[in-house]
Design a protein around this nucleic acid. Structure first.
Length: 292
DNA sequence: GATATTTGACCCGA
DNA sequence: TCGGGTCAAATATC
């Protein structure tokens, strides 16, 4: 399968995560049969399976117009499609919107630097503006992140420009060296609206300027990703005993890319959205739309 | 001290 | 004139 669509990328990552979870389950089974961590691994597998099934089902049933989507595989933006109507408004010479993705995570493998935030009319949450961290290398890719109104846990992410930086390519192409995931389990206390503090926030961060640092578990959520759960989901996170998670991750062999923490990062957030709405809805990747 | 983030001000197009 | 995108100084964090 070629990773020429975000759905394909997600499918690939989920498959990796599923394999990693299976591996993790085997390790846990060998260590201590019928333990809670094993149930956790099983839950991860179920989560993966559901997402993969849904992605397959939806991608099989939905056709995207060729002119509307130009294979923006992560880290390898293809040239812009033929010009259509100009974007509604995009000031100061920035490129037209390349892609709009609704996702429950803002992690996309690139390193973004926030440069602005704006309250938008009709939106409860502010709109966040990010630039590629490799802008000094001439990369002018930007993205605009806005929480969706109907699903506060989901983000609508609009991408502009193309990644021309080497950092992005290195980040996306080196399968053995994706950015180390930082899984932040914070605490179980919910209800705080303090940018993910105290809520189950998951984040994936990278070492400074593309440098690699060992995988870590951090209690400090970055602003890059915030998966906030509100009220009704509190119970879903009760098994996130930090000690258990630490042991779990600590007992997991390091695969170089640390797929377990990375997978846990994405899976937990998706599951949260899955339970919030129709479980058959595709939460992590509701739709892709091109604005020309 | 270097780097990242925040936030008010400014600019531009509709 | 207003809404939205960007700039840049101030502040926070590592």
């Amino acid at each position: 399968m070629t990773l020429d669509t975000p759905a394909a990328v997600v499918l690939e990552l989920m498959t990796m995560g599923q394999q990693s979870a299976a591996h993790l389950g085997d390790l846990l089974r060998a260590a201590s049969p019928a333990s809670p961590p094993q149930e956790l691994a099983a839950e991860i597998l179920r989560c993966c399976g559901r997402v993969i099934d849904m992605i397959r089902a939806t991608s099989a049933g939905r056709k995207r117009k060729a002119a509307e989507y130009q294979a923006p595989a992560l880290g390898a933006w293809s040239p812009p499609p033929p010009p259509g109507p100009p974007p509604k408004r995009r000031g100061r010479g920035a490129e037209a919107v390349k892609e709009v993705v609704t996702s429950c995570t803002t992690v996309d493998g690139f390193i973004w630097r926030k440069y602005g935030q704006k309250d938008i009319n009709g939106h409860k949450h502010p709109r966040l503006y990010y630039r590629c961290a490799h802008r000094q290398q001439g990369c002018n890719a930007t993205r605009r992140v806005q929480r969706t109104r109907d699903q506060p846990a989901a983000y609508e992410i609009a991408y502009y420009g193309e990644h021309t930086c080497r950092g992005a390519a290195a980040c996306q192409q080196h399968g053995a060296a994706p950015p180390p995931a930082v899984v932040d389990f914070g605490s179980n206390s919910l209800g705080s609206d303090d940018a993910g503090r105290g809520s189950p926030a998951a984040s994936m961060s990278q070492g400074q300027q593309g440098g690699w640092s060992p995988p870590s578990v951090s209690a400090s959520p970055s602003s890059e990703v915030e998966l906030e759960l509100e009220g009704a989901h509190a119970h879903e996170w009760e098994w996130h005993d930090p000690a258990t998670i630490d042991e779990l991750i600590g007992a997991t062999p390091y695969y170089g890319s640390d797929p377990v923490t990375e997978f846990l990062d994405g899976c937990l957030g998706w599951e949260a959205v899955l339970n919030e709405n129709d479980p058959l809805d595709l939460p992590g990747l509701h739709h892709f739309a091109m604005f020309q």
